[in-house]
Design a protein around this nucleic acid. Structure first.
Lengths: 192, 192
DNA sequence: CCTACCGATCGGTAGG
DNA sequence: CCTACCGATCGGTAGG
């Protein structure tokens, strides 16, 4: 999925548009207008509207996979590995908020490559579940339902950008705050 | 917003449809087909497609408000009040998963009553924030950022149905599990 | 509840 | 990159 410069520009503008109006609520004419060209001219660079959605969904999915591989290849204690995974996944999310949002909410409008995408996501979830299980086992923590816990983690990470109104804090501070909430919840780190 | 029986049936079928295809991805013809009537016949019961979205979004918003009022009017210790709020809000969510999903993700497609909806939601968030602040103050817990914490709570509650693949557990068990995750996170209740 | 129909807009193609 | 245009579908109305 090597994109040319023009395609990259289309992608970026489309992300903005889809984020604002949703994929189904955005027309190729809307997109063309934002790019200061006519709708028909888009088709010199894209096969279809859906192809742009594929760029978005499969691109960020690949980023998540890459980051996971890095974590798995690192040789550090389990508890640090958990933190590293949370931090790395969060970095990808926070550096690609709009893309992550579209990835999370518009993937079902993929048609041609829908089943491929669903399987990719299932694989990712499966691999994260394995990582989590290993960590819990090594630390002797109690893991009631690995798949429930994995979905909790991924969904919470993928939507954490919603908790912020604006970018007043630095990304590192945001990551710290979210990691603490996920690990210890509302009260887990309160002196009760 | 008193709905007649026919309207209630339209509402229920629309919720199913919007959940599956999204509001913008659902046509009034799709909806009519599911109801075994012609698209034009719908307009004897609805003013517009948007009106159905209004029923969904404002209806569940009212449910959330009602539940919050009940919690506020109850005279119990602060810590129990927090649990009660979490349980009550979760009940509404879990008993109305599809409606909550549409409320969370499709509200921006309201046009006529968009600003009214946005204000209603801001008010709700504000009232929850007050409740949370009172509870933290009474318990002498540390509340760094009330509005961050409130958004964390609401967003986590509103999306918790995603963590479950199927309805194998009873709702009460689900509520317990989610409440624990929100209060104590992944590790807060582990013997470390 | 239906048939018949409206203007607007959709994603996309032909041809330059 | 454009103009010109395609058939399909959109939300919705008229009239019964």
């Amino acid at each position: 999925m090597e994109l040319k410069e023009k395609q990259r520009r289309i992608l970026n503008v489309a992300v903005e548009l889809f984020k604002e109006k949703g994929y189904m609520g955005s027309s190729v004419r809307d997109l063309a207008t934002k790019l200061n060209i006519k709708a028909a001219s888009l088709y010199a660079h894209i096969r279809s509207k859906e192809e742009i959605l594929e760029w978005i969904c499969f691109g960020i999915a690949q980023d998540f996979f890459d980051e996971l591989q890095e974590v798995k290849n690192t040789n550090i204690p389990p508890r640090e590995k958990l933190n590293l995974f949370l931090d790395k996944h969060l970095s990808v999310v926070l550096e690609n908020r709009d893309v992550t949002h579209i990835y999370s909410n518009e993937w079902r409008h993929l048609e041609e490559r829908l089943s491929e995408f669903v399987e990719l996501r299932r694989n990712y979830q499966q691999e994260v579940e394995e990582l989590i299980s290993e960590i819990y086992q090594a630390e002797n923590w109690d893991l009631k339902s690995p798949s429930f816990t994995t979905r909790f983690i991924l969904h919470t990470l993928n939507n954490s950008y919603f908790w912020f109104k604006r970018n007043s804090d630095s990304t590192d501070e945001i990551i710290d705050e979210i990691r603490e909430k996920i690990l210890f919840g509302l009260l887990g780190n309160q002196k009760q």
